[in-house]
Design a protein around this nucleic acid. Sequence first.
DNA 1: GTCTATACTCCGATAGAC
DNA 2: GTCTATCGGAGTATAGAC
Lengths: 221, 221
Amino acid sequence: MASDQTRTAILRAAERLYADRGFADVTLRDIVAEAGVNLAAVNYHFGSKDELITELFVTRSIATNRERLAELKAAEAAGGGRAPIDAVLRALVAPTLRGCFGPEGERSDAARFMIRASVEAVAPIRKIKNREVDHLRKFAAAMQRAMPELPEVEIYWGLHFALAMAHHTIRDSERLQKLSEGQCDLDDVEAIVDRVVNAAVLALQSGTKLGETKARSRRAN
Amino acid sequence: MASDQTRTAILRAAERLYADRGFADVTLRDIVAEAGVNLAAVNYHFGSKDELITELFVTRSIATNRERLAELKAAEAAGGGRAPIDAVLRALVAPTLRGCFGPEGERSDAARFMIRASVEAVAPIRKIKNREVDHLRKFAAAMQRAMPELPEVEIYWGLHFALAMAHHTIRDSERLQKLSEGQCDLDDVEAIVDRVVNAAVLALQSGTKLGETKARSRRAN
DNA sequence: GTCTATACTCCGATAGAC
DNA sequence: GTCTATCGGAGTATAGAC
């Protein structure tokens, strides 16, 4: 059981240091010093630095995905197997956003770690995100139930754009703050969620009107 | 003038190798071998690996920003100092998207390098992107001229979401392909541009209707 | 001014003793 | 399971040749 203590100590120290200083600035030697364990223990317990990062990210990712699905199930149950489109999109983006935003001082190591994971996009984390497709398919299906008349391809674009706005808000919140000179309030998580959901719902319906805008744009040139 | 040859050889080799294999897998020793120059030449001409990457990215970035501004000026000139909102947003996202997409086989080293820069988000490139605020402010101003009745804060959110959709489409095109099983066509650049612009225009107007959607969502829960 | 050879520091990984 | 010692390879710094 001393094994588990060492393992856990490494995980906690790594999460905190990565959250504080980012992936690029933290070495395994920093982590083991913080955890009070030996350097070789990392490779013994995790195999490699990348696999340590993978385990940290997967753990948090699974928790977020669980929340997402729970919200989706609840919304669909309330609607008798079919949730309105904004509720589906809310279930998709809200858990991620809630996990990252909120009053800056109160952010947990886990929250700040996930922000770093979005911003720095290190190799092991990119690999995992590319395997998220199966999970996303469940939301695509729910979106189709919500809008059965919409062409399937529009569903995928809409889902894609919804994630785009959510993740980009996490990743580039600093630039948005600077650009707006503080006018965009990033401390009110629920307001951000409303904003993203709202924009995503409209974006979802925009694909079917592509001909009109194209014509208007061409006329302007 | 031998100086310029060495410098240029390093830049070309670096851009090509980074485009082919990504930042994480390419070392300075790979680059100097490809360029046929000595290892120390990199530090002599650029100072550090990060500054080499910075120079590559800044060069391409300036070119893209020039295209963006040219399109914006043209659109505003055609409208007598005021362009329609979709033309402004098109000027913002089209040059970036055109530079990255198109038939996969025909992509230049520069295009593939910029895709890598978006996907891997390495430190020196993140720093530059955070300094792009001044450039974006010109588009915020043009957006305000196009929609003078819209609250300023909505302009910033709209600009933010437009960039979100454009960049996320570049960054996660692979996942979108997999999710849609090839239904989302990423070879037709202009269609992607139309789609992003269209969604961004609608997203821009969504912020003012926040109260309504919130009420609808709450009712659904 | 340019370029080269070489050495230095630090990283992640591993073999083997305990 | 844990630790020591060490490895190859990374980016960097510098002395000196041209």
